[in-house]
Simulated scan of single mutants.
Amino acid sequence: MKTKYLIIVVALLALACSLASAYDPSPLQDFCVAVKDLASALFVNGKFFKDPKLALDNDFFFSGLNVLRDTLNPLGSNLIAVNVDNLVGLNNLGISLARVDFAPYGLIPPHIHPCGTRFLIVLEGTLYIGFVTSNGDGNLLFTKMLYPEDVFIFPIGLIHFQLNVGKTNAVTFVGLSSQNPGVITIANAVFGFDPKINLDVLAKAF
């Protein structure tokens, strides 16, 4: 009998852990338009939101993804994110998106999104892309050469990258399964911040 209850407890704990690590919460109503004026606002999912009866058409509208971004920087790439900060109607819907422009041989360096899976569709150019699985899965590398209208998925929390291997500009649109997926660029996180990680730690790790 004790074994039966132990199995039930373990199953419930596993369920609780899976729920605790789930993606953005399910919406509690049709929409929760984010608002900065707190005088008559409510609070949900990390943002204040307005009374749905006061929502406007423009709360669900963003313009500008057709504009070529400046890629004159060391990486040769530029990203414009569309998230709850500039499209307030996304609040509590669990998604965000971006446009990424690449100069020839431009790079989005290895990084992770700790809170969201990412999909990518190529509009122009030829990209070499890939991701690396976690330690438990053997750090396998999955790569692909992508061409216009190709789609690729980067699973949540895994290191991934994109490189324009063509001699012309490239453009992609990406979608993410979180309104705030976060981003950690590996090189910057390890080597680029103050206070710096102890050099003995870096020397032994690398």
Rank of each mutant, 00 (worst) to 15 (best):
D137Y: 13
S26P: 05
L28Q: 14
E149R: 09
I186L: 14
S40Y: 03
G89P: 01
V44Y: 08
Y128M: 14
F60P: 00
N86K: 05
P109L: 11
D101K: 00
F152C: 02
L15F: 15
I159N: 06
V171F: 02
L87G: 00
R118W: 03
L93W: 06
V201Y: 12
F61D: 07
L127K: 04
R69P: 06
G76L: 09
L107Y: 01
L68K: 11
A22N: 15
N58H: 13
Y128R: 10
V67I: 14
Q179C: 06
N45L: 05
K53C: 07
L163K: 01
P155E: 15
I129G: 02
D194F: 09
E149C: 08
L146F: 07
V84I: 07
V190W: 04
G166L: 02
D57F: 13
Y147G: 07
A41S: 02
G46V: 03
L13S: 15
K47R: 06
V35P: 03
K2C: 10
D37Y: 00
T126F: 12
D137E: 13
S18H: 13
N58E: 15
P148H: 03
P110A: 10
I80H: 01
N135S: 15
F61N: 10
P195F: 12
G94W: 07
L13T: 12
G116R: 06
D70V: 00
D150M: 10
V33Q: 01
K167F: 10
F60R: 01
F161L: 09
C32R: 07
F154Y: 12
T3P: 06
F43N: 03
L123H: 13
S18R: 14
F60V: 09
L107T: 05
T71Y: 11
I197R: 09
Y147A: 12
V82L: 03
F49W: 06
F102T: 00
N188D: 07
L127D: 00
N164G: 04
K196S: 15
L90C: 02
F161E: 06
D57S: 13
A34M: 00
K53P: 09
L28W: 08
L107K: 05
G46Y: 01
G116E: 01
C17Q: 13
D30N: 11
K204Q: 14
T185A: 08
F191S: 10
S77K: 00
N188P: 04
A170H: 02
A11R: 07
L199E: 15
L202P: 12
D51H: 09
A170K: 01
G89K: 04
P25Y: 07
S134R: 12
I108W: 08
N135G: 08
S26W: 04
K4V: 04
D24R: 01
T185G: 07
Q29S: 15
L107A: 07
C17K: 11
L56N: 07
L90P: 04
D30F: 09
F142C: 05
K2M: 11
F102N: 05
A189R: 00
A98N: 00
V9P: 05
D37N: 02
P74L: 12
L38R: 09
Y128V: 10
G125I: 07
S26H: 10
F31T: 08
